[in-house]
Every structure is written in structure tokens, then in C-alpha cells.
Amino acid sequence: MIPTIWTWLTSAQNWVGSFGIGNRLAQHVGYSLLVVAIAAVIAIPLGLWVGHTGRGRWVVSATNAARAVPTLGLLFALALWVGPHIPGRAAFVVPSVIALVLLAIPPILAGTYAGVEAVDPAARDAAKGLGMTPRQVLARVELPCALPLLWSGLRSAVLQVIATATIAAYIGLGGLGRFLIDGLAQADYAQTAGGAILVCLLALVADGVLALVQRVVVSPGVSGRRRRRRGIILAPGKDMGHGNVAHTTRA
């Protein structure tokens, strides 16, 4: 079994062309980036606002509760009900993108909100008392301090999107999921398993890259990489790494 999968993965002809691995991989990465970008543009400002003002906490609870909706059902419902209203090839793409954005919002929102919420009230009070305007408090204190949790929410969202985009191949989205879905339909296990391995690798690499970026963008003062040599850690917001508050249902 394994040799045939290896053959499928390594044969040059499977890598080229519009149905080749190269193009499918590019599509998968492209859709994932697009979706996470849209979700982040919605969820980060919203999470910052809820955390900063303390108003609208129900939004966070509601999106958290919405995670109980099965991802497969959400994909199918959007494909069935939204797809027919969209002309051309976009009919296959738009419902998937909407579903993926909806799935990516909760972890980013929860992470951002939890991050701002966890900012030491004394630091916030001091920021105000030293003469920062509300906008400066948000940009210079709350956001940088919220970054570890915000970022782990983002990492959760990326994993969620990469995984669900694979399934979205069933409703016509391109990407690596095609190999899994088409392979299953054609009872071609080499293609199915080869695709599955590629998706796993993509998820691992994406998470690894985000972990590296985290080291650059998050201040060592709040990441927990530098801590007091003796006694307790006084600063809030430690590195949450993988499993964390922002974790979500997986697809």
C-alpha cells in the first residue's frame, strides 16, 4: 500500500497541470489565506472592541455556542441554499468561503477578546493615568498584551480552515481536498491517502510558520519566554501554545 502512495506522491506527472498537486496546493493555500484574512478583519476589531469596552460580551458567547453547529452541515447548507443564487464558477467558491469564514471567526474573536480581557487592570489604569488616550491604550498596551492569546486564536482558525477547506472539495472547492474526495469516489486509495498526507503536511507547516512568526511579533515580556528566575510570574498572558482557550471544534 505504502509504495503505491509513495509512487503517487513522487511521480512528476501528478505534480503538474491545472489538476496537479502544485496547483491544488496553491489553491488550498490561497483560499485559506483569503478566508483567514477576511475572518481576521472582522473578528480582531470586534474582539478588541468587546474587550476594551466590556460591552457586547454576548457576541463572544454566541459565536462560541455556534461552534456546536456541525461544520459539514454548515458547508452543505450554504452550498444548497446560497450556491444557486450565484452565477458561474463562483457558485462553487462563494458558499465555501462564507462557511470557512464563519468557522474561522469564533477562535479569532475568542482569542482576541480573552487576550484583551486578561490585560492586567493595573497596567491599563497606569496607561490611562500616564496620559494615554483610549486609542493609545488600545494600540500600545491592550493589543500588544493580547497578542499571545490573539495569535493562538489565529493559529486555531488557520488549522480549522485548512481542515475544512479539504472537506469543502465535496461541494466543489478546489485545493488538496480534491485528491481525497475524488480518490474516495474513484476508490483510488493511493490518491486519497497521498492527498491526506499532503493536507497533514500543509497543516503542520502552516502551524509551524505561525509559531515562528509568533516569536517575532509577540514581545518576550508577555510570551513567557523570559520569566522571573525565582518565584511566581507576575505578568499575565503566558504562551498558550497549542491547546488553548480559543480552540474550536475541528473539521
Binding site: 492586567d120 493595573a122 497596567a123 497606569a126 490611562k128 515580556g221 505578568a235
Partner: peptide, 17 residues
């Protein structure tokens, strides 16, 4: 506030700086 120094109980230092 920028013209008045302000010191509080738990210092309130900015952990990221």
C-alpha cells in the same frame, strides 16, 4: 495626566515593554 506623575499599588508596568 501627562503633566502629573502617577504611581499605583501594583506598579501597573507594561509587561510587553
Amino acid at each position: 495626566r501627562r503633566g502629573i506623575g502617577y504611581v499605583i499599588q501594583h506598579a501597573g508596568l507594561f509587561p510587553h515593554r
